[in-house]
Write a protein that binds this DNA or RNA. Structure first.
Lengths: 366, 366
DNA sequence: TTTCATCTAGAAAACGATTTCGATTTCTTT
DNA sequence: AAAGAAATCGAAATCGTTTTCTAGATGAAA
């Protein structure tokens, strides 16, 4: 009688174990990791049975299940993801495209995405595009194969969005620059409101001459921030003074330069709303160099709430951009899309809020 | 006569295109993405020929190659990574395990790894372990399946290293805490030397009472830093004063606390070597609060050279930890390991160096 | 004891690519 | 023109898993 551990795939067994040399038989599986077939043979069951045990199917008797589980434990078996992905059409991988990795701004976004994916048992494939749209398109091409189940893109270019829509893969955009009519799922922050609130805060403190830095930054968020600034001045009945709207590309250096120019004005401002925290750091440096006290001689407000704003001297009052939530929300939305669910709110906007610290006070009388 | 586009895999063609319903025929490939078989059929060639074109094999005639390439272009075909990975036994994925993502210290490491992998055409799977060894072990288990070709681990735990060695997968450790006798491939920085150089620099400036903060941080790098500090004092014939070696767990708060205690000493130090930049930020805060001028009344040196040290007031003199190179080097080593090469230098140590800025000067006479 | 429903387990067919190897065809060479 | 070499192409096997579908075994009900 033939023992049942010989019954499965006998021809394969013979060729695999007897007719061929050992070295040939395991050409691929060189690291000696067992496959389902080997586990099955050892346990004296069929391959599907092992698969059923692995996937917690019901149609396996308790003794069989326990035997298989013991052997899986003993041999430290883990299943081959590629084979599983091929068969199931899912890879368990999510792509995240970031403009760059050496910018701490994106770090909480990354962290938020990672948190949600970890909870869902998915893994995160990270790609930096270096702000180059061609790079982005190139990556989306390689990403659009079956290698991931979904894509998150931070600051996507128009072409990237087009390509994503064509690909048919689930995706969610973070900080979408695109036009307001766009329908692609996306998560943004209320930059306009942040600019409005920051400026209004300075106005309430009594400031009348408030400068803004960052007019030349092209990102949509930057445009909204200055729009919020202007709207706040307007709402308070204050004039919009062109000489108080400074160029700035959201770098520390441009904040420094702009501040020096502001200080040379016949009538300098009493407060500066830096478009982001990096520019605020430049503002600080210029003010320190000129020996001006913050906030007594100049109030400063930033935007983003980067970690180091807390340890600036004095700690910077700034608009908090909820970047962790940005990442978490986008990832959650993507998960729902992958699940085939409809998003009741495909375009989410997360609120910003002012974090009051010690870089602002009322202007000096006179 | 039978047209040649019908000749390949006829039975499959019939079942796939005629006998079955459309919905059933493409149960998996729901997004309408073409497969090699479909491209082959359209081009009137066999599946292997398309594969050869895709892989740039030589045994394809120019007209055939061009025809296939045109059709691949036209239909926007991209090959299924899972299938390729299964067959080739390589996934094109590298795992990077980081303690956490919300710590900007690791950012340049991540960037360095990403750079090298991008150049190599590999993709980066990112995982944060949150400093929990169990998490780490859990992840290494799921990672040790065939889903990645290699693993990079930052600050690995002992158990993680053991598990990696058992797995047989190529791996490289970054900031390995382990014993000096360990043979696993790893990349570290010269923390001891950094501590030595920083302290010596202060001694050369004329300081005699130099404090160190960060005695309680358990990481190997922290231990080496204080050892370098002590060695420098020793080499200069200066006494090791226990009251000048402060507790500190490398957080901003502990730098602040330690500084306050140091200032209450009957004879406070004239210089502080903060174990890292975060603690240096706490030192600054305490000194600013007490109205002490940096560097005139207190010299400060940090360690790590985080981005914000440049914009501190005054800019912080600190020891540069080459974190980008840490990432690049580790990734390059891993690539070589994956290629089956032997590493002539499995344990690499990258040099640190002092970055002189404006937080140090000679102590006041008397 | 017979009949029918319920469990279990396995054979075989996918999933989509790559690789090997043999069969043609085409090109040289004598 | 015949023989050998080189170029080109495709049939079939394979990677390791999941899924479907069917065949026995077992149990319960009549």
């Amino acid at each position: 009688m033939i023992p049942d551990w010989l019954c499965y795939n006998r021809s394969e067994t013979f060729r695999g174990e007897q007719a061929q040399h050992k070295s040939m038989a395991r050409r691929h599986n060189t690291d000696g990791r067992p496959t389902i077939a080997q586990i099955a043979r050892i346990a004296g069951v069929s391959v599907p049975t092992v698969s059923k045990v692995l996937n917690g199917r019901a149609d396996v008797s308790l003794p069989t299940r326990e035997k298989v589980e013991r052997i899986i434990q003993e041999y430290g078996f883990v299943r081959n993801r590629a084979a599983r992905a091929l068969r199931k059409g899912k890879t368990g991988l999510i792509d995240l495209l970031l403009p760059r990795l050496d910018d701490e701004y994106y770090l909480p976004i990354l962290e938020g995405v990672a948190q949600v994916l970890r909870e869902a048992g998915l893994r995160l494939v990270l790609t930096a595009t270096d702000y180059k749209p061609e790079e982005e398109v190139r990556w989306i091409t390689t990403v659009t194969d079956h290698s991931t189940d979904g894509i998150l893109v931070v600051l996507p270019s128009e072409q990237a969005i087009e390509q994503l829509e064509r690909s048919g893969l689930p995706f969610v955009l973070i900080h979408n620059q695109g036009g307001l009519q766009a329908t692609a799922p996306s998560v943004r922050i209320t930059s306009w409101e942040g600019g409005f609130v920051a400026t209004t805060y300075l106005i309430r403190l009594g400031h009348r001459r408030i400068a803004y830095i960052g007019k030349t930054a092209p990102a949509r968020d930057a445009i909204e921030r200055i729009a919020g600034y202007r709207a706040a001045l307007d709402a308070a009945g204050l004039p919009l003074l062109p000489e108080l709207e400074c160029d700035g590309d959201f770098t520390e250096a441009s904040g420094y330069q702009a501040t020096l120019r502001l200080l040379e004005l016949p009538e300098p401002p009493t407060a500066i709303f830096a478009g982001n925290d990096r520019q605020a750091a430049g503002v600080y440096r210029a003010l320190h160099e000129r020996g001006l006290a913050i906030p007594e001689q100049m109030s400063v407000v930033g935007f983003d709430n980067l970690p180091y704003t807390e340890i600036m001297n004095p700690p910077l009052t700034t608009v908090h951009a909820p970047r962790l939530e940005l990442g978490r929300t986008a990832a959650s939305m993507l998960l729902r899309l992958i699940n085939g669910e409809q998003l009741e709110m495909p375009r989410v906007v997360l609120p910003t809020h002012l974090v009051e610290r010690q870089s602002c006070c009322p202007p000096r009388a006179g």
